[in-house]
Design a protein around this nucleic acid. Structure first.
Lengths: 202, 202
DNA sequence: ATAAATAAACAACACGATGTTCATTATTTA
DNA sequence: TAAATAATGAACATCGTGTTGTTTATTTAT
């Protein structure tokens, strides 16, 4: 049974807060926002904010969960084959995600891109790795049927690289460095099907 | 010409601040640290902190740059072939990075893992993607010479996936969603060499 | 060795944001 | 129409920040 906020004052206030928050996030970034900012923009008293949310992180959580549950829906309902071209599983999911994101691009921008301005460590580290991987590219072969943009490929490599590194740190270094390195290298080089020895429904 | 801090008081103070900061970061996380915390731990007056650093982010920046310039050194000097087994370029760099990280594991943990507790959006989104990709795995083939751990492979896929998504958002959607999806899918499936039509020195 | 320079300590302050309390006013629901 | 409750407005204590003086201790230069 859903607790329904039948009182119009409540839904109206919550809406204004949410709207103000989204606007402010893209104007000055999450960190710089004060409760007073939100109250001013939403044209409510600052106390009223505390009537509905515990604090700023609480509001953020609510917004995140709201949007991510939409994403969840989008992804869960995502069929294995969604069109006549028999797109792969990954391709299908990726496309669905990108299209969902397009509908709420400013919030996703704030959450995923702005974030790296406040915690620039990951981005700085990525830049170093990227610089190294960027050395020694050979020019693309002409008319290669599979050719992808260099920029995209480089981003792909660096992201996977960083992801594995962070996974390794988070899980308290479950494998020796040499083992991780060689497995990573194999996946990158041969693709996930061959590398894994795993069959994935395509 | 290097500006040398010949005054022992300065180097001593800076060292204590740095040490205190590193300790506190792993004890309570960056966000929760106050200047007073650092001053107490370093056994200096709070004002003395402001004599050397502008604020907390400034101190963080200094520490980051210090560590990342070490990483830079490690990576730049990283030879293309570092051992008789003819490791690939990626493998070599990965191994060097992991070994470097092991030497400062607590700071890297704080910067790369703890971060996601403060900005949990990316992690939450990753979990959704991971859940979807985790469906429909087939068991690994026995004795596959290239077999890698499922956990590592899944992390690899999700990280690359998220990296491309963020790249796409950050660069103001430079390609249509369908194009990104199909290129991504190709790289994952066929490996970067075939997918790119690019020869990379191995 | 001594004097000038300066790092560090100590106290005080203004400022801004947070989160809470309480009385009052406005709006909704019964 | 009356009771319930959402919203307002003012006040307050608390905390962390960053700054400004003054005094003490240590280092550097003469």
């Amino acid at each position: 049974m859903k607790k329904k906020n039948t009182d119009l004052r409540i839904v109206r206030t919550k809406q204004s807060i949410r709207k103000a928050f989204y606007e402010l996030i893209q104007e000055k970034g999450y960190e710089a926002i004060t409760i007073q900012d939100i109250a001013d923009r939403a044209m409510i008293n600052r106390n009223t904010f505390y009537l509905h949310y515990q604090n700023k992180p609480d509001l953020l959580d609510t917004c995140m969960d709201e949007l991510l549950s939409e994403l969840q829906q989008t992804v869960v309902l995502c069929p294995f084959h969604m069109n006549p071209f028999r797109m792969s599983r990954l391709e299908t999911v990726m496309q669905a995600v990108l299209e969902h994101i397009s509908g709420s691009i400013t919030f996703y921008y704030a959450m995923l891109v702005e974030e790296s301005r406040i915690y620039p460590f990951r981005a700085k580290m990525e830049a170093i790795i990227k610089g190294k991987l960027d050395e020694g590219w050979k020019p693309a072969q002409r008319n290669s049927p599979l050719a992808v943009s260099k920029e995209l490929l480089l981003e792909y490599l660096v992201s996977a690289f960083m992801g594995i590194v962070i996974w390794w740190i988070k899980n308290d270094r479950p494998l020796p460095a040499g083992e991780v390195s060689s497995q990573f290298s194999r996946i990158v080089t041969y693709g996930h099907l061959k590398a894994a020895g795993i069959a994935v429904e395509e």
